[in-house]
């Protein structure tokens, strides 16, 4: 039965891996079993998921930010575009 008993160090790695792929059943069971007893690993998991949710949200909804291209940048890009077009002709 010991093959699905994992240490905190192993669990920390499995928790991360479970965020990247579906783990085989015995590993999922091992995580569940460990988490029932270990408050620190429960915390660790919750915090990883929290950081992910913040970043995913940020990656998806940059519309919220009010930044825009500066006039300088706009002009520089425009110049470069025109230069490129000139070269193509």
């Amino acid at each position: 039965m010991r093959h699905w008993i994992f240490s905190c160090k192993q669990i920390s790695r499995l928790l991360s891996e479970s965020m990247d792929r579906r783990l085989p059943l015995y590993k999922r069971m091992g995580i569940r079993f460990h988490l029932m007893m270990c408050v620190l690993c429960r915390r660790y998991r919750k915090q990883l998921l929290f950081i992910r949710s913040l970043l995913r949200q940020e990656g998806k909804a940059p519309e919220f930010s009010c930044h825009s291209l500066s006039e300088d940048a706009r002009k520089r890009i425009l110049d470069n575009l025109k230069k490129q077009q000139g070269e193509k002709k």
Binding site: E58, G59, P62, E63, S65, H67, S68, L69, A73, R74, I77, L78, L81, K82, Q85
Partner: peptide, 21 residues
């Protein structure tokens, strides 16, 4: 060529925000 310049007007800010984040 026209279009590329228009893209800057139309989507420049949105692209910039996406990249800046």
């Amino acid at each position: 060529e026209h279009e590329a310049v228009q893209w800057l007007d139309l989507y420049g800010d949105a692209l910039y925000r996406f990249a800046l984040v």
